[in-house]
Amino acid sequence: MEKTWRWFGPNDKITLDMLRQIGVEGIVTALHHIPNGEIWSEEEVVKMKNFIEEHGLRWSVVESLPVSESIKYGGSDRDQLIENYKESLRNLGKAGIKTICYNFMPVLDWARTDLEYPNPNGTSNLYFNRAEFAYFDINILKRENAAQDYDEETLRRMREEVAPRMDKDAEHRLVENIIVKTQGFVNGNITEDDLEPVNKFREFLELYKGIDADRLRANMAYFLNAIMPVCDEYGIDMCVHPDDPPMPILGLPRIVTCDADIRAFLDAVPNPHNGLTFCAGSLSAGAHNDVVELARKYASRTHFVHARICKVLSNGDFKESTHLDPRLIEVVRIFEKERPGVPMRVDHAPLMLGDGEMGYNAGYSFHGRMLALGMILGVMAAVNEGD
């Protein structure tokens, strides 16, 4: 697999020179300065591509070319937004950039309640506490009938374990973790400049009233069918990122959560350019998913791999697991054998060795990801040595 790294542009504290030194071959990035829905001009695409190549690397994957909310819920301006998207694809295709990662998650990209959950060895990881998420949903967001979406054990934990320690500062931190710090740096709907993020978040949720999973699937198929002619013309592979976590949250439908969901969107638009970003971490955050079996089943339709994995606890919480988790080793083996050359990047690695003081984006530390990359490269070497 091609060794790639998610990089957030020239202002990223992690430089391209640093990445070349640790064995990275390809860069995964986006034009983060261009607002959602606007066209990525040929000039801006070439400018970024040249900047990367001047540092001895290549722009391997776009992550992400954001799909506007109006496309997802089917707003009155979606056709114009799709036309803008197609023009951005053309400009990327002309520049030779052929792999586009995107997601079709309503409002919220990925969700965690704790961005620095302490590990016994002194590092920290991302963590999803289901009871804390319920507290945010019920007591901070105050979504109507939210309590109905949680089992009694989660509600008990919320009342007995979470609520007693939720002062104003703790609530603010929970809001920051769920809807600000994990979203704004990836062209998200909410940024750190928003003074009232919860109210703005409620406005986005309101846009999806009456949109169920079937409607969202239909809107995704509408979008994909519209852009496939451009993908055919330029040889562009679209690869949707699984929902993270892979389950309905905050009353929003989620449609890339499991085997049946993956099969549904692939069958709905059978064009081979319609494919999957195989994020073992997102899929493994659902106890219902066998990530090894899914990797084996969908390797041929996978255009991009995220090498990370989660451990689901008995209470429904989940956290990032080691990159040497046996399941991830087997996933790497499958893609190294069946999809040689497919871009792969490590993801959501621990904070370690001073990462926490560097101001890195949540889940995207330097030392943690460098360690993770070394682990995965070792697995790849062992797989190939066994040939």
Rank of each mutant, 00 (worst) to 15 (best):
T257E: 00
K209N: 07
Y222F: 15
M238N: 10
P248N: 05
V269M: 01
L207I: 06
P245W: 01
P272A: 04
G235I: 14
A213D: 08
R215K: 15
V230H: 09
Y234I: 13
L276C: 07
L276D: 05
P253I: 02
R217V: 12
V240A: 06
V240T: 12
M238R: 10
G251L: 03
A226M: 06
I227Q: 02
P248F: 01
M220V: 09
N225I: 10
N274P: 11
L252I: 05
D244P: 08
N271Y: 08
F223K: 13
A264W: 08
R263V: 06
Y222G: 04
E233L: 11
C279N: 11
P245M: 01
F278C: 05
P246D: 05
K209T: 13
A218G: 10
R263G: 05
G210S: 04
N271T: 13
E206V: 05
A260R: 14
L266H: 13
D212F: 00
D267Q: 15
Y208G: 03
R254A: 02
Y234L: 07
N219K: 12
V230R: 05
L252R: 11
L224K: 15
E233R: 15
N225L: 08
P246M: 00
F265H: 11
P245K: 07
G275A: 09
D244L: 00
D267C: 10
P270M: 03
Y208S: 03
I236G: 06
A226F: 07
A213T: 13
N274R: 08
